[in-house]
Design a protein around this nucleic acid. Sequence first.
DNA 1: AATGAATGAGAATTCATTCAT
DNA 2: AATGAATGAATTCTCATTCAT
Lengths: 193, 193, 193, 193
Amino acid sequence: MYIYNMPRQKVDEKTIIKEALKLFRQKSYHATSMADIAMACGLLKGSLYHYFHSKEDLMIKVIESVHTFFAETVFTIAYNHSLDAVDRMDLIFTEAEKIFVDQESGEILGNVGVETALSMPEFQPTIQAFFSDYFKAIKEVYRSKFDEGMANELAERSVSEIQGALTLSRIFNDEKFIKNTHLRTVARLRKNA
Amino acid sequence: MYIYNMPRQKVDEKTIIKEALKLFRQKSYHATSMADIAMACGLLKGSLYHYFHSKEDLMIKVIESVHTFFAETVFTIAYNHSLDAVDRMDLIFTEAEKIFVDQESGEILGNVGVETALSMPEFQPTIQAFFSDYFKAIKEVYRSKFDEGMANELAERSVSEIQGALTLSRIFNDEKFIKNTHLRTVARLRKNA
Amino acid sequence: MYIYNMPRQKVDEKTIIKEALKLFRQKSYHATSMADIAMACGLLKGSLYHYFHSKEDLMIKVIESVHTFFAETVFTIAYNHSLDAVDRMDLIFTEAEKIFVDQESGEILGNVGVETALSMPEFQPTIQAFFSDYFKAIKEVYRSKFDEGMANELAERSVSEIQGALTLSRIFNDEKFIKNTHLRTVARLRKNA
Amino acid sequence: MYIYNMPRQKVDEKTIIKEALKLFRQKSYHATSMADIAMACGLLKGSLYHYFHSKEDLMIKVIESVHTFFAETVFTIAYNHSLDAVDRMDLIFTEAEKIFVDQESGEILGNVGVETALSMPEFQPTIQAFFSDYFKAIKEVYRSKFDEGMANELAERSVSEIQGALTLSRIFNDEKFIKNTHLRTVARLRKNA
DNA sequence: AATGAATGAGAATTCATTCAT
DNA sequence: AATGAATGAATTCTCATTCAT
């Protein structure tokens, strides 16, 4: 609620991106207004334009920030060859799940992303960039145990499965889908050792 | 494009649902206006309210119509025990792909559905009902070859994989994801015979 | 003032154009809001978009309506060769003055037009079209007494003088500038008979 | 275009007035934002308020600066009785044209002024003061050859004609209107010698 | 003097919905 | 059944202005 003459808030770009991400995840891009985001930051809506040219610009930066966060905390694991493949895969899922479940840094590329991309094609490249990196990371893990062609196929399949499991987890409000995918994927990799 | 004095179409509930489905798929629920839908039907937006109480009501009926259509053309295959499991699975994918790819009757439950459900929780039960039936059908096929527990697990996994593949197909504008999932799923089932 | 549940107003495009013209004249294009115009019509601002795509669209139609009105009531006099040149010139001024002074149908092409055209070049052709017709009409009158070249020069000069007199009349809130121009122009033409 | 870290300009009131004048002329008062002006000066918009209380205040000072500039470079010629009337008139036009055409010091009193005055009556006195001096100067020239009444009439007419020619020059993007007015006015004066 | 963050009011525009005809 | 005019609330975005640092 806005209180007249409230003390001037100080925020920064990061805070706004974080709050926007939270809301876009909860309510989708289209159903979240700039006023919603501003209020979550303790600002008035006009103030957001100090940081971002437009809602679209903000969305792009939200997507990029999720991408960066994934790159740093998840994808990077795939390239750590001091761990064996099974451990890397396990860790990747563990870290990704934290993010998926987390209210703060949650993932939006899959579900929010797709629907948003339908109406706003300008988001597509940014979303594609994320999934390309995702795919590359998963493939890197499989390459420790499989040839190029097989690693490719398995990576494509795993990313699909994870993405679908996330969808189902949201639809049924039940994390079991993503958790089961985790267990199954790691188990299969171990068996194939 | 609106054409002035365009020939008055014969419209009925079905036509409107079909046109709405097309638009929701193309542009998402939120980015499609009642005026868009009306125009596609050769009506003015006020006229839509003779058929549907609200945009939400229309969306619910769109989802239900997709559900019915899937039940009749896809899920039913799973229960046709005159075909063997591999053939049923193959046919299910073949039919489903037709729908996914088709501009007219296309699927919206996964991608559009999720994002919509986020902002409009009233859609969730309808969407869940669809996926429950989907899951049951796939499981029915696996039951021909596997025990309850295994069939369950495999069905959960397949539905996830299909759903994720659809997401990726849309993001990358490339049907290979859903096609590869088709091939892999049938191949695995055949091997396990 | 908006009164809740006020009876639905009925207006038409012409009414809106007339009210918009009045306001654009009084307050300039930029300082007149769509809400101002709507209120003057007894509508809410959203309703204007039923008739006009945008404020720009409305402005274009306002300009065109002034042009049409001038063509019908003023320029047409120039081509009525049953009157002699002096009478035609006199009548042209008399009719134009009515319009310039009139709150309802007032002229906006010169003063409002120029400044508006600076920030919105899309208005320029419409405004130029008006002045071209204006010039042609005045020249037609001079042609009864002068050769082509002289008529051209005199017309250019008269249109300039009228336009400038209008500017000064507005700046000093004094109709004498335009009235004196009327008298001088007719007197000169009579002398040259 | 804003260039990041652009070299800090030496700004003072005069610079700001000059830049504001340029922009008001190009885009009109209403379509020019304080941010536009600040950017043109290499400042941020908040900084303008160290020099001017408000945008209106700035506009007033812009108008006054044009007035002063005209007084010093144009009107003063009228009172230089060491030149004959024709030469003074010619020189007045020559100097005024330089200003009208010039991007830097250009005239705004007529076109921008009128429209602005409509929405902001507080500018009216300042604009009237300018035209009064303009009128007095032109009349002074005519007084060398005509009696009080005639000089009055001719001055009124000349100022109107110049002002209208400026309007037309802007509308048609063609300097011929103001140039022709120059030639005609001087020629008439010479003939009447 | 200058910044840059924030304000708050108001702009144009969109849109689901209503309803008299 | 269909229209088309109107609503009213919401939305994105702009902008003059303020002010602590």
